[in-house]
């Protein structure tokens, strides 16, 4: 991933900080610099907004053939989660039997190790989700 990109995204990755359009009130995650609805009216009016971390599984899939950096974690679940603030994001579901995961399941964000740049490189942390 590279340390500079990871560092830039730390507020979103650690603390789920997205953006709220001060014109229409819609919340975006990952953060956007312009609201696609309000367009030029939203310029300069997108404010940081911290999501509560609580959400509902909208859909999910079980990964058996992962990218190489996640090969030690298979099988694992990636879910599309509707956050309580209305925006959607994808995240891994941890500490849960795969059979237990279902659409409508309530989840909360937790802090986990996501990947690392090999044994000598940086370690990247961020959000995953666990069943409430």
């Amino acid at each position: 991933m590279g340390v500079a990109r990871y560092w830039r995204e730390i507020p979103a990755r650690y603390n789920l900080i997205g953006k709220k359009c001060q014109v229409c009130g819609k919340i975006y995650f990952p953060p956007r610099s312009i609201c696609p609805t309000c367009r030029r009216k939203s310029i300069g009016k997108m404010e940081d907004y911290k999501l509560s971390g609580k959400g509902t599984v909208e859909s999910y899939t079980i990964i058996y053939t992962p990218p190489p950096e996640f090969s030690d974690k298979v099988p694992y679940a990636i879910a599309l989660i509707r956050m309580d603030e209305g925006c959607y994001l994808t995240g891994q579901i941890v500490d849960c039997d795969l059979e237990e995961i279902h659409i409508g399941m309530r989840v909360k964000a937790c802090f986990r190790r996501i990947q690392e740049d090999g044994k000598r490189g940086a370690i990247y942390y961020g959000y995953k989700f666990r069943k409430v």
Binding site: D72, V94, D95, C110, F111, R112, R113, I123, Y125
Partner: peptide, 16 residues
């Protein structure tokens, strides 16, 4: 610890 847990993740969970 689970495969994606270490001292930093445990520290963050306790601190939060």
């Amino acid at each position: 610890p689970s495969i994606d847990e270490d001292t930093a993740t445990i520290a963050v969970e306790a601190a939060r």
